[in-house]
């Protein structure tokens, strides 16, 4: 089994469109994981059927029992997250600010603060129109702990891939360089970096690659919209060479991405196009790279 994690640092570089196309090409031979739990989109392109749902609990939130509370203010004093406020002469917890650290409940002299586990999202298993199984999730509104939900999606997808003896696990990662991305990357065999030929694309590629490098994961790159800016493309290529990152493909600026998306189709299904050919070649190239990995 080879785990390929697709990340980009910057949003909107085409990461999910590529990931969904690869998934479509590989059919039932791959398991798909959408780790962008903050703004999950892959299910739209792969027509996921949401056949199994599970509540995801993580972290806790303080709840003050107003009957027993003596309004001494000890809780408010120790809270470092400004989560306890007095309204109408009563101490109350703002659940959005509460970190679930328990400090207030430990110092309350009358034990009037309970810690309640919080549902922070939904976890799903689906079949896709490509015939593959897909693991995905939806983070609750204004919820925290996306890193833990990402870890859950990844772990379940990995188990599924191994149990069903599938060849590939294709993971759509999240943007940025913080906790969800760190969770997405852990244990990957190959990081596929999707960037674009813009100054922001290059800037974000360099930052996210430093993270990938610290995990010691083999890396490959697709430069999207390479014809937007020849100078930046050159700079990206120089960076890839310097860091020994394999250049998989340079893909031209193409509104087919948006057009296919508007019909909820992967690029592969949308009909013959240069883009389709590029993506087919890219996936073959990526598969060849993974064959050489131990």
């Amino acid at each position: 089994m080879k785990e390929i994690v697709i990340i980009s640092g910057k949003g909107g570089t085409g990461k999910t469109s590529f990931a969904a196309s690869f998934a479509y090409l590989e059919k039932e031979n791959a398991v798909i994981a959408d780790c962008d739990v903050d703004a999950a989109n892959m299910h739209l392109l792969l027509d996921a059927d949401f056949r199994y749902q599970e509540d995801f609990y993580s972290g806790e939130v303080a709840v003050i029992d107003e009957e027993n509370c003596v309004n001494c203010g000890d809780c408010k004093e120790v809270c470092r997250f400004d989560a306890i406020h007095v309204t109408d002469d009563q101490h109350r917890v703002d659940p959005i600010s509460c970190e679930g650290c328990w400090y207030c409940s430990r110092v309350c002299p009358v034990e009037a603060i309970d810690m309640k586990t919080q549902k922070v999202g939904d976890f799903y298993l689906s079949m896709t129109k490509a015939g593959s199984e897909m693991v995905h999730a939806k983070l609750g509104f204004a919820a925290e702990n996306s890193g833990k939900l990402v870890a859950k999606v990844k772990n379940e997808a990995k188990k599924l891939t191994l149990a069903n003896k599938k060849e590939f696990l294709i993971v759509d990662g999240s943007p940025g360089v913080g906790c969800p991305v760190i969770s997405s990357l852990s244990g990957a065999d190959l990081a596929l970096l999707v960037t674009e030929a813009t100054v922001s694309g290059l800037h974000d590629l360099k930052r996210v690659y430093r993270l990938v490098k610290s995990f010691n994961i083999k890396s490959a790159c697709i430069i999207n919209k390479y014809d937007l800016n020849a100078d930046v493309t050159k700079e990206i290529e120089a960076f890839l060479e310097e860091e020994n990152i394999i250049l998989v493909a340079k893909v031209a600026y193409d509104e087919t991405f948006s057009k296919a998306l508007s019909q909820a189709k992967t690029i592969i299904e949308y009909g013959d196009s240069n883009l389709k050919t590029e993506i087919e070649k890219s996936w073959q190239h990526i598969k060849n790279i993974t064959k050489e990995l131990k």
Binding site: D38, A39, E144
Partner: peptide, 10 residues
Amino acid sequence: APPGTSCPVI
């Protein structure tokens, strides 16, 4: 703001 809907955006 950062993208997404979780803690950093809030």
